[in-house]
Amino acid sequence: MEKLVIAGREFSSRLFLGTGKFNSNELMAKAIEASGTEMVTVAMKRVELEDKEDDLLAHVARPGIQLLPNTSGVRNAEEAVFAAQMAREAFGTNWLKLEIHPDPRYLLPDSTETLKATEELVKLGFVVLPYCQADPTLCKHLEEAGAATVMPLGAPIGTNKGLQTRDFLRIIIEQANVPVVVDAGIGAPSHAAEAMEMGASACLVNTAIAVAGDPVAMAAAFKQAVEAGRMAYEAGLGLQAASMVAEASSPLTAFLNE
């Protein structure tokens, strides 16, 4: 498999993992291990002064894993820049999953603010991976603004509905000069494989793994699906026939007859 390169850094794994919704940090750490991921997202929260809880970073930070802090909770570009600066300071990385979704019901990204924030954050030296609408025009604008990838959604966050935006994802992939990471909506390994077969550079998965009956086994299943999808893409898929008329793959010469 070809390596994935983002902002000059090479990744062997094309599966990115989110850390939300796991029942425990121990389970999450095992799922990270089983997924083979080299890119893991984290959010930020306010420190509780009395509460000395377990340090999440101890379960996530491993050699070979790129931490990808997100800006979840911000409502506009100004708040995103503030959150980005806090993340860079807290985690010691300039990599950032930019997500601006002011509407808590559908968590759909605000395209105008996302583009504005990308422009500003790139100037401030961040490696910006914006979560965005599956809008080919917007993705070109984000690329021109210096985004390191584009991360269009397959379906609303956490819905597990798969690639509802597949036609637009195809256009985005065809036009992109930066890696396209399908983020949000991937609910099953088959969805991830489909995205990879289409030529997506990577998939970001969280809910589908975290809420599975066995998250560790599901992480391993996603690892294989992403690899299989990518290998199929690189191997070159056969074209789909326009009609339903069968094309034989075995010789139909009648050896049973005279």
């Binding site: 850390t19 939300g20 940090n25 959010a43 930020m44 306010r46 503030f82 806090m86 300071e89 985690f91």
Partner: peptide, 30 residues
């Protein structure tokens, strides 16, 4: 006061009555 203060400047950052300080750390998230 809504501005990130790098740890290299914590020593030099003087506090005064009523100031608003925010402290964040890692949390689970996708």
């Amino acid at each position: 006061e809504n501005r990130m203060v790098p740890r290299t400047q914590w020593e030099a950052c003087a506090l005064s009555e009523g100031m608003r300080v925010v402290v964040v750390k890692a949390a689970c998230g996708g």
